[in-house]
Design a protein around this nucleic acid. Sequence first.
DNA 1: CGTGGTATTGAAAGGTATCAAAGCACGTGG
DNA 2: CCACGTGCTTTGATACCTTTCAATACCACG
Lengths: 258, 258
Amino acid sequence: MTQVKTISLDSCHPMQVPCADCPIRYRAVCASCEAGDLDRLDASKYYRRYQAGQTVALAGERMEFVASVVSGVAGLSQTMEDGRTQMVGLLLPSDFLGRPGRAVAAYDVTALSDLLLCCFRRKPFEDLLRSNPRISGRLLDMTLDDLDAAREWLLLLGRKSAREKIASFLVILARRTAALRQADPAEVPMDGIDIELPLTREAMADYLGLTLETVSRQISALRRDEVIRLSGKRQVIVPDFARLVAESGDDADGGLPI
Amino acid sequence: MTQVKTISLDSCHPMQVPCADCPIRYRAVCASCEAGDLDRLDASKYYRRYQAGQTVALAGERMEFVASVVSGVAGLSQTMEDGRTQMVGLLLPSDFLGRPGRAVAAYDVTALSDLLLCCFRRKPFEDLLRSNPRISGRLLDMTLDDLDAAREWLLLLGRKSAREKIASFLVILARRTAALRQADPAEVPMDGIDIELPLTREAMADYLGLTLETVSRQISALRRDEVIRLSGKRQVIVPDFARLVAESGDDADGGLPI
DNA sequence: CGTGGTATTGAAAGGTATCAAAGCACGTGG
DNA sequence: CCACGTGCTTTGATACCTTTCAATACCACG
């Protein structure tokens, strides 16, 4: 179990960046806003910062804000009475956190790495949603993307072997990080792409529906078979991306990297 | 593999019901419409009917309409190259089919039972979405519900045993069918509630991430342990709903039946 | 009464979980 | 500078659950 560190100070109001200069400006819920909308958001937003391992919210609690992930990684997870847990969502920069219209959190939210959130108090944001079709339309689109991602994960959890799960996870991480850098992961830059794992083996296990031992074993197996190389525990080098995709069990033409 | 029956006639334009008399009027995407909106929908909607086993759409194909399920059950599924398939969504009456803004189907859509769809051509519906916040707001809410349902399924596929999967599936079916009848499944009506299984064992296996043999074995085991009784192959009687919920591994207080 | 689709049951194989121990990296304090 | 503790990771041996392969049973229908 990850221990919950109690930190009271400095979790709010670090220095603030104007929306126009925001790193996630063109991918977040505010992506399709125009200048006037941005002014309104700028006025009401505030930042929250969490350290790796901290709890952002617990299932069943009220959450008085919704937010965009600016940097870092957050995990949504569900826990059964006997302690089994399954991560049901991974929030990377630009992803949206919280459900408009429902103040009670449905999942535990944890900072998997140091995390910066751009927050809006619930009520004003919901008003904005109602009055601004650019924002509500964007949110619908993002929610539909989340749904597609969740459904892709259903296939992974329901039908893939442990080895395929690990490979799929690496492919997805590669695609998402490449998307943030606007690069194409299939364009192998000379000596292979490298992927920074923002999760412990235990968090990966929770996400992939495995145990941490199995995660470790399969990573070792992929290394032995030279599908990947490791530098340290958290840095993965992929010499042949197509090979990794083949190991993931997905179609080679899984669409453009989103 | 389910064989695809080719049927060309009678799959469109059966007799049509006015929206005001529609059985799913208060749960579908049109739920929050007012009289004026309904007139507009009434004018442009049309029905499609499918027989059990028929294919509604294939992943990658263009789908020229979006639709609400009026009656029957449809399944969304994904298939890997080697034939492994996972059902990623079960569409019951009032559920919405299709993604506004994306004409290419992401999943195979199959009629699991005889199926009646209330369809709208894509373009006019998307126009309506943009112009009518009642419809777009309702669609956002339904999509968020779908996302929650998918995430509940992630927990099931990732962490539950075969026995728990079957029990969970029965609980969900009981809740959904009770919701359509506006009844509470915890209110046991004398001799236990009964659940009509609208799926073959194979379809259940695809949904639950199991093999059909395991589904069959676990149903037999639940029968031996007197958690359920069977009348025929497709009718399940649950004498003690709380007992079934306990077998599902979920919290007893999993919220009100939605 | 046979036929095809569907469902049940059995025996054996296989993959992942579980339990247990050891290795590694890093920071703290002697 | 090194010993030591802690958290994370790797590796090993075994147990268990689900799959796989195979045979049989059930049921509606022609």
